[in-house]
């Protein structure tokens, strides 16, 4: 990655179409997951990032190939944006052996060791300490990689945030703390869970650079992420980005979503990152309606192929149940 961050105009002219396409891809994938969930092809919890795609796409597209990503249980978008193949993600949703976690993780535990995608943490705040360790190992191994640690604002009420932020800052480690602030920790609004609702103030108290960005604007996210990553990679210690976003759907498929006003959701839908950028790019003539339609067709095909592949894939044999359990395998 270049150390020089792109400005908005350059991004609009160059990278924006790819960002838009990736956001549409994530959106369509998750919309299909809703159908598959209703059709009982996907089981368990399913947390969707619909509405928050600008965060996943804007931050992750700014990372270099060697960088690590630690994410949450709302991570389909992060995984797809990072390059975990859609076939492997879909097969994981189906619980198949070809899934990126061999069907042992499911929606909440998408992993890809080759991509250093330590996805899939279903414990709020649980991914933060390991992200500090990855950054420590990278520094000790003289790698100039950055670990992007993505979490929701709810995780900032956990002790693991404060321990990790302190340690990363104390040891001056290359961690990018990415707070995907969708304003609700499950069913609890920001102001009901945090005594200090300006999250950047709390991060900054650990001595790291911290600022807030419009998380519904992928270009703003991308620009901020590039700057933050350049700072971290350059040895500036950890950095904190708060990306103000909103989830259009409930916390999970089980959640009846009774804790917020429908008018509030509608208001936020007005700044849906996908139509917003589409409109801007069409107006500027950077993309055409035909191009967008072509993407939609390609994405639909990719999704259908992923489903077909997942349907056809084998299950892990039950006889392999203890195969990857270290304490079992060591039994003489």
């Amino acid at each position: 990655m270049t150390a020089l961050a792109h400005d908005r105009e350059t991004l609009l002219a160059q990278g924006a179409p790819a960002l838009l396409r990736q956001m549409i891809r994530v959106r369509r994938f998750e919309e299909k997951c809703v159908e598959l969930y209703s059709a009982t092809k996907i089981r368990g919890f399913l947390h969707l990032c619909i509405g928050e795609e600008a965060v996943a796409v804007g931050v992750i597209s700014s990372l270099g190939p060697g960088d690590a990503v630690v994410s949450t249980y709302r991570e389909h978008g992060h995984a797809l944006a990072r390059g975990v193949p859609m076939n492997a993600v879909m097969a994981e949703m189906f619980g198949k052996a070809t899934g990126c976690s061999r069907g042992r993780g499911g929606s909440m535990h998408l992993f890809d060791a080759d991509l250093r995608f330590y996805g899939g943490n279903a414990i709020v705040g649980g991914g933060m300490p390991p992200s500090v360790g990855m950054a420590l190992a990278d520094r000790m191994n003289d790698r100039d990689d950055v670990t992007a640690c993505i979490f929701g604002e709810g995780a900032m009420a956990e002790g693991e945030f404060h321990e990790s932020a302190n340690l990363a800052a104390l040891w001056h480690l290359p961690v990018l703390f990415v707070c995907e602030n969708n304003r609700y920790a499950m069913g609890t609004a920001l102001a009901r869970e945090h005594a200090e609702t300006d999250l950047t103030v709390r991060a900054a108290s650990y001595g790291m650079v911290a600022w807030a960005v419009d998380g519904m604007d992928v270009l703003a996210v991308r620009e901020a992420a590039e700057r933050a990553i350049a700072l971290v990679r350059g040895g500036g210690g950890p950095c904190f980005l708060e990306l103000r976003t909103y989830r259009f759907r409930a916390h999970s498929m089980y959640d009846p979503d009774r804790y917020r006003d429908k008018a509030e959701i509608e208001r936020w839908r007005q700044s849906d990152p996908i139509p917003r950028l589409t409109g801007e790019l069409l107006a500027q003539g950077v993309v055409s309606d035909d191009e967008v339609a072509t993407w939609e067709g390609e994405i639909a095909q990719e999704i259908e192929a992923a489903i077909a592949s997942a349907e056809a894939a084998p299950l892990e044999p039950v006889s392999d149940l203890t195969r990857f359990v270290t304490s079992e395998r060591q039994t003489p």
């Binding site: 690590a68 630690v70 250093r116 330590y118 649980g126 933060m128 300490p129 390991p130 992200s131 500090v132 360790g133 990855m134 950054a135 420590l136 190992a137 990278d138 000790m140 191994n141 670990t147 002790g159 693991e160 321990e163 990790s164 302190n166 340690l167």
Partner: peptide
């Protein structure tokens, strides 16, 4: 928490 998790992340990263 940070210590055990840091050890885990460091182990994952080599």
């Amino acid at each position: 928490s940070a210590l055990l998790g840091t050890a885990l992340g460091a182990a994952m990263a080599g």
